[in-house]
């Protein structure tokens, strides 16, 4: 077992375990902080998939942006929200949660089954990419390539998403303003 493989299994385990903790935890703030761990270990998985730029973006946007936003929503919503949120008197597995658990487990079985049925490690186009040597190597310069592609091939989605982001931010600011003079 090589170092990379060991790191991959470590990261995968941390990801799934912290996600399960988020699902199981009754304390809301603690589950949000545990979601930090999930996102950080996912960034580690992206690095192991040789997508370092995506990993840094994940850390900057998700961990630095989204989770701080979620925590701010807690802080702003006052003490009584937190008190309301705490009083969920339910265990991880109870009768009312059985359908959801069944659905999730069956969905997982279906997906893993499909993965093995399609023989995912020997896909035709993947084998072709490996044989033509156009798969990403650990030393290939990806970040400059991403920059070039962003300004050439993917210019239209880039512009579309920037307009959408601006619309969403204006909308969020509009929705969350204080209603003083109508």
């Amino acid at each position: 077992m090589t170092m990379v493989k060991a790191l991959f299994y470590l990261m995968g385990f941390i990801t799934l375990a912290s996600a399960l903790f988020v699902a199981a935890s009754k304390n809301l703030v603690r589950s949000v902080f545990m979601f930090f761990v999930t996102l950080l270990s996912l960034a580690g998985l992206y690095v192991l998939a040789l997508a370092d730029f995506v990993a840094i973006t994940q850390i900057v946007i998700y961990v630095g942006g989204i989770l701080v936003l979620v925590l701010f929503a807690f802080m702003l919503s006052g003490k009584e929200t937190l008190a309301n949120l705490q009083q969920q008197n339910d265990r991880f597995i109870s009768i009312s949660k059985l359908p959801a658990l069944l659905l999730a487990v069956l969905f997982f079985i279906v997906m893993v089954n499909i993965l093995f049925k399609t023989d995912i490690n020997n896909l035709q186009w993947v084998n072709k990419a490996v044989s033509y040597k156009i798969d990403i190597k650990p030393d290939s310069p990806m970040t400059s390539n991403i920059g070039t592609n962003l300004m050439t091939t993917y210019l239209l989605p880039f512009e579309a998403i920037s307009i959408l982001l601006m619309m969403a931010l204006v909308g969020a600011a509009h929705l969350s303003r204080k209603e003083k003079n109508g």
Binding site: A49, A51, F53, A129, I136, M142, I146, N149, L150, P157
Partner: peptide
């Protein structure tokens, strides 16, 4: 996206 170095649509 690991299997496409030039267009890298997956990472994009």
């Amino acid at each position: 996206g690991k299997y496409d170095r030039f267009n890298n649509g997956g990472q994009m």
